Amino acid sequence: MRLYLLALKPTDSVTEGFLPAAARLGLAVTLLTDRPEAHRQAVPHAEVLECDVRDFRAVISRIATHHAPDAVFTNSDHLQTQAALAADYFGLPGKPWQAALRAKDKAQMRRHLAATGADTVRSAELGPAQDPAVLARASGVPYPCVVKPREGVASEDVVLADGPEELVAHCAETRARRPGEALVVEEYLSGQLFTLETLGDGRVRHVLGGFRTELSPPPHFIEERMTFVRAYPEAVTEQVLAQLDALGVGFGACHTEFVVGADGRARLIEVNYRAIGDQCDLLLAELLDVPLFAHVLRTHLGEPLPADLGARADGAARLEYPCADRAGTLTAAPEATDLAVDGVRLAYRPLRALGERHALHRTNRDFLGVVRATGTDQTAVDRAVDDFLGAHRWEITP
């Protein structure tokens, strides 16, 4: 059976998760990408074909002129609609392209949730040629508000504005970095930030748990720490799932970010119609002791998920992301490490090499590395992570 996997840049989710899972399933994999050399270096033995994967027509043509497909899949935020359209064209299982589009387009997500009565967040869309000063005066969005790219990802260029002048300034700064892109301005939703990780086959949907997310101080929203949450109060989970149902999201993996306010109301921040990234998916598979990546691929092959995944229910986990606080060259950092201490398995993986020079992005592109720790006792997990962070240093030389 042949799997076509659409990708942009190489990611840990693909190289360490989905490709090994495909090999264990005995699948022949063809990787379609607009960055073929990067993938050939990351996975030298994979079949990699160059393709304008952002264009669904190019994807369909590339597949049609190669081997017959049994599944079309992507774990990229940017390519879900293209993969869904290609799968539908070839009559293969996949996500509804309309749901993929609603999840990716943050303005459309807000409009659809409001139209279905699922939730209403005051928001406005700013087209590439529109004057943000007009929006600042007449949008009806209260302050503070959040400015974000309409089709952005990973808190990239997401920033808090306390008033009209900040709103206009942030729009100008974002447009300078992302010319031609539409922006969304929406009311700031206060509350603790969480994620919900789900996996469905269109018939059943499993809730895998989620993460409590700790963010950097405003005005930016950098995810600095993730702590596993085995289960939320039933009312919270039901609210999130009802909003996903309204969006038509229920097939394959989905990573949903939401806040819970003081009144217990759960409100969506964004829906990433894919498996969670930044190595959280690798940790989740280990923590739950399930073949998570294989299950995701099986849904795209048309196989039903088991009624019970057999996931472990006694796990505790935390991820920590040492983060650059300035532009410059990384001159000190620990090497990749694996430890076992007091019943905790800890892994550290560098995300930036010594000697590399980078600008300051104020997003997860500033991550220097990731610490993953799993066990059965949260106190022991936290202690192991804190001890590791305290014993090592990361230095940036301007």
Rank of each mutant, 00 (worst) to 15 (best):
L3M: 10
A7Y: 01
K9A: 12
G17L: 04
F18G: 01
L19N: 02
L19S: 03
A21H: 04
L25G: 07
G26D: 10
L31P: 09
A38G: 07
H39M: 02
Q41T: 14
Q41V: 15
V43E: 10
P44E: 04
E47R: 13
R54E: 12
R57T: 15
R62Q: 15
I63S: 05
T65D: 10
H66Q: 03
A71P: 06
V72F: 01
V72L: 01
F73W: 09
F73H: 06
H78R: 13
T81V: 15
Q82K: 01
D88K: 14
F90C: 07
F90E: 07
G91H: 05
W97Y: 13
Q98E: 14
A103N: 05
K104A: 10
D105H: 11
K106W: 12
Q108K: 06
R111I: 00
R111L: 09
A115K: 09
D119L: 05
E125W: 13
L126H: 05
A129M: 05
Q130D: 15
A133P: 06
R137S: 12
V141I: 10
Y143C: 12
P144A: 08
C145N: 07
V146W: 03
V146K: 09
K148A: 07
R150P: 01
V153R: 08
V153Y: 04
S155K: 08
S155Q: 06
V159W: 09
P164F: 10
E165L: 13
E166P: 05
C171A: 14
R175I: 01
R177V: 07
G180V: 08
V184L: 15
S190I: 01
L193E: 15
L196S: 11
G200F: 01
G202K: 10
V204I: 15
R205E: 12
R205V: 13
V207L: 05
G209F: 08
L215M: 15
P217E: 15
P219D: 08
E223Q: 09
E224P: 00
Y232M: 11
P233N: 03
P233L: 03
L244V: 05
G248W: 11
C254G: 08
E257W: 01
D263F: 01
R267V: 15
I269N: 05
E270Y: 05
D278M: 08
Q279M: 09
C280K: 06
L282C: 04
L284G: 00
E286C: 03
E286H: 11
L288W: 06
G302R: 11
P304W: 04
L305V: 02
L305H: 02
R318L: 08
L319M: 00
E320D: 03
Y321M: 04
P322V: 02
T331Q: 12
A336Y: 00
A336F: 00
L339D: 00
V341I: 12
D342G: 02
D342N: 11
V344K: 06
Y348P: 13
A353W: 02
G355T: 09
H358K: 14
A359S: 13
A359K: 12
R362F: 13
N364S: 14
R365D: 13
F367E: 03
L368P: 10
L368S: 07
V371Q: 07
R372W: 06
R372D: 08
A373K: 06
T379V: 13
T379C: 00
A380H: 11
R383C: 04
V385T: 12
D386M: 04
G390W: 05
T397H: 07
